[in-house]
Nucleic acid binder design. Structure first.
Length: 428
DNA sequence: TCTGGGGTCCTGTAACCT
DNA sequence: TCTGAGGTTACAGGACCC
């Protein structure tokens, strides 16, 4: 039971599923309960996407190469992941959140911010609502989550992290400095390995030490935006509101080859496949892309990007591919060893809003109609049911160079805004 | 040890426009 | 007509998140 008014001044909840993908897998395979389970790519270049706390005890964490994770924890069960299932569980959980308040801002499949200002009268204060949500999620989905309660998004997020696993943490306004200042600078949103290294060079190890450095000094060291941002966060100031349904800004696909590739024909084929997949996602979301970008990562991990803005926005795979190919060919790579290629559609606009422009652009519609038919076939017979002839083996089977296991079963682009706030990757 | 995939944001530079 | 300043846009790269 929660004492009345314990979260006065706190209206923001951050709810984060515990080891989400792995927990869903354990729910599906009850015989794995209490054992180390890793969800991730099993190939020679696969990485861990999610791991149960039993696996984490061995030092396993997300983004670690699976091969290394298995050296640390040889008894772990490795599962490839089932994004469609995780998305379904996520939809149910988000629907539960929306039954409490319309102000739900999903950050990824497994976490969301809730503003419960308007829900208090019905359900108690924010901390009581947090307890209620945790119980409902467990009852309905059989998985646990952790909740942070605070007056700002940033502090609520840190609070849920400190409550993990299967806990709740309420940080009242008067407690924010005591909570925040002992934390390492790396806990701040926007401080990754590079910035942390810079801050350590300045002798700043904790948020409290950073808070007492003049904002001007931080701005000089880190740039005006990052300097101001970190100074504000270090004093618990975060004006961002909980915003439901944010507009997507880009979507795309990339693929790491199982082994490095130096054959331009193979790269071209991969660019076509990635363009088709990206376009299908544009169409399913009702968007057109104004800009196409490609990403190329070489064997030594050096990465470059190139982009081009289209005269007429598109959701047609062939048009994305034509631009991607021009960008790639312009690099003039002479059988360089390539590890990864990617295609992204950027500067998205709603398809309806661009109807006029399309007519003016007099685009050829036959190809789009064919791709729409392929979408319908994919819905009926499964992804890849229809694809360009160049992506087929001679015997008609779908074919390509062996990239890593694709773990991407997502149905649409993320509403993520990165830079420290959103993503669709579970955990950590 | 050897680094996936899907995102956003910031910064610097160059080109373009007024 | 030419020129320079200042603003805007496009592009590329890097950092970050999970």
């Amino acid at each position: 039971m929660v004492e009345h008014g314990r979260s006065a001044g706190c209206t923001v909840l951050h709810v984060d599923m515990d080891a989400f993908f792995a927990s869903v897998e354990v729910r599906r395979h009850p015989e794995l309960a209490g054992t180390p389970v890793i969800v991730g790519g099993a190939g020679n270049r696969g990485v861990v996407t999610s791991a149960t706390y039993e696996a984490r005890r061995y030092g396993v964490h997300a983004a670690m190469p699976t091969a290394r994770a298995l050296r640390l924890c040889p008894t772990a069960t490795v599962l490839p992941g089932d994004m469609a299932l995780y998305a379904e569980v996520s939809r149910s959980v988000m629907a539960l959140f929306r039954s409490i308040t319309p102000l739900v801002e999903p950050l990824s499949l497994d976490e969301a911010f809730l503003d419960v200002t308007g829900a208090g009268r019905r359900l108690g204060d924010a901390a009581e609502i947090g307890e209620y949500l945790r119980a409902r999620v467990f009852d309905e989905q059989g998985i646990t989550c952790s909740v942070g309660v605070a007056g700002t998004k940033f502090v609520a997020k840190l609070a849920s992290t400190s409550a993990k696993p299967d806990g709740i943490r309420n940080v009242r306004p008067a407690e924010v400095m005591d909570f925040l200042h002992p934390l390492p600078v790396g806990a701040l949103w926007g401080v990754g390995p590079k910035t942390e290294e810079q801050l350590l060079r300045l002798g700043l190890r904790t948020v409290g030490e950073l808070a007492h450095v003049p904002a001007k000094t931080l701005q000089r060291a880190l740039g005006p935006a990052a300097g101001t941002h970190l100074h504000e966060l270090s004093w618990g100031r975060d004006p961002r509101r909980v915003v439901p349904d944010e507009q997507e800004k880009s979507t795309g696909h990339e693929e790491t080859f199982g082994t490095d590739v130096d054959d331009p024909a193979v790269i071209h084929r991969e660019l076509l496949l990635l363009s088709e997949r990206t376009a299908a996602r544009l169409r399913s979301g009702g968007w057109l892309a104004r800009t196409v970008s490609i990403k190329v990562r070489f064997a030594d991990f050096a990465t470059l990007t190139r982009s081009r803005t289209l005269e007429v926005p598109t959701d047609v795979g062939k048009e994305l591919y034509d631009t991607a190919r021009v960008l790639y060919d312009a690099l003039g790579l002479d059988r360089a060893r390539i590890r990864l290629v990617g295609v992204r559609a950027e500067r998205l606009i709603e398809a309806g809003s661009a109807a006029q422009q399309l007519e003016l652009g007099a685009r050829e519609h036959g190809r789009r109609d064919a791709e729409l038919a392929a979408d319908r076939a994919a819905r009926r017979f499964g992804a890849g049911a229809v694809r360009p002839a160049t992506l087929l083996h001679r015997d008609g089977r779908p074919g390509r160079e062996a990239p890593l296991t694709s773990r991407n079963g997502r149905s649409g682009p993320s509403s993520s805004r990165g830079g420290g706030t959103r993503s669709r990757h579970p955990e950590e």
